[in-house]
């Protein structure tokens, strides 16, 4: 499997690269900066991953090419907000930002501890996207669309504070119908 991880100038991207490599044995994981996205053909990859990053989704318009490719896409944190924004959804400041703390979410019927780093959150879900998980306060923690092969995690599966990080990658591959 050829995986393209697009780095939005973030400081957790390499953690995500290592998580993808260990969760998907045999996969080749390429990391490319957002600035080089214009010169890449997203259709040539089996699995596209949009990294976390600073700022809001409107600062990263070139990801439209990623979604337009029709290939399976996973977005993490900012990456999820980018997917949501490109589907017409909105992102707003989160009252009392959460950075470096864990939360427990209900994930496919099981409680899972996940790491959170975000100042912004999805306040209006984009067209065709379903909310797949929220936290106790109702903050969207995962959303996606099976038909369009899009999935977003607001939390950080690549953090050392998320004990079952690999499971979230396996679940993404399954949800997105890869392989």
């Amino acid at each position: 499997m050829d995986v393209l991880l697009i780095d939005n100038n973030d400081s957790f991207t390499r953690n995500l690269e290592h998580l993808l490599a260990s969760a998907l044995p045999g996969a080749r994981v390429a990391v490319e900066p957002y600035a080089r996205l214009g010169g890449l053909d997203p259709a040539g990859w089996d699995f596209l991953v949009i990294s976390p990053g600073p700022g809001g989704p409107e600062e990263y318009p070139d990801h439209a090419r990623v979604l337009a490719s029709g290939r399976p896409v996973l977005g993490v944190c900012l990456g999820m907000q980018v997917i949501n924004g490109l589907c017409g959804g909105r992102t707003s400041p989160l009252c009392g930002c959460v950075h470096g703390r864990t939360d427990v979410i209900d994930w496919r019927g099981r409680p899972r501890t996940v790491a959170r780093y975000h100042s912004l959150h999805v306040s209006e879900v984009g067209r065709g996207l379903s909310v797949l998980a929220t936290n106790a306060a109702g903050v969207v923690m995962a959303l996606g669309c099976r038909e369009r092969r899009l999935l977003g995690y607001q939390f950080h599966p690549e953090s050392f504070l998320t004990p079952d990080g690999e499971e979230f990658i396996h679940d993404a591959v399954e949800y997105l119908g890869i392989r």
């Binding site: 390499r14 490599a21 050392f160």
Partner: peptide, 29 residues
């Protein structure tokens, strides 16, 4: 909780920063 979050964030950052030249699966806390 504040101090723990501060450290955790930097631990994730350092994991990232050493991962560019560390073998897959070798990075741990």
């Amino acid at each position: 909780a504040k101090e723990a979050a501060e450290l955790s964030m930097i631990v994730d950052l350092i994991r990232n920063d050493i991962s560019a030249h560390c073998a897959y699966g070798s990075v741990r806390v």
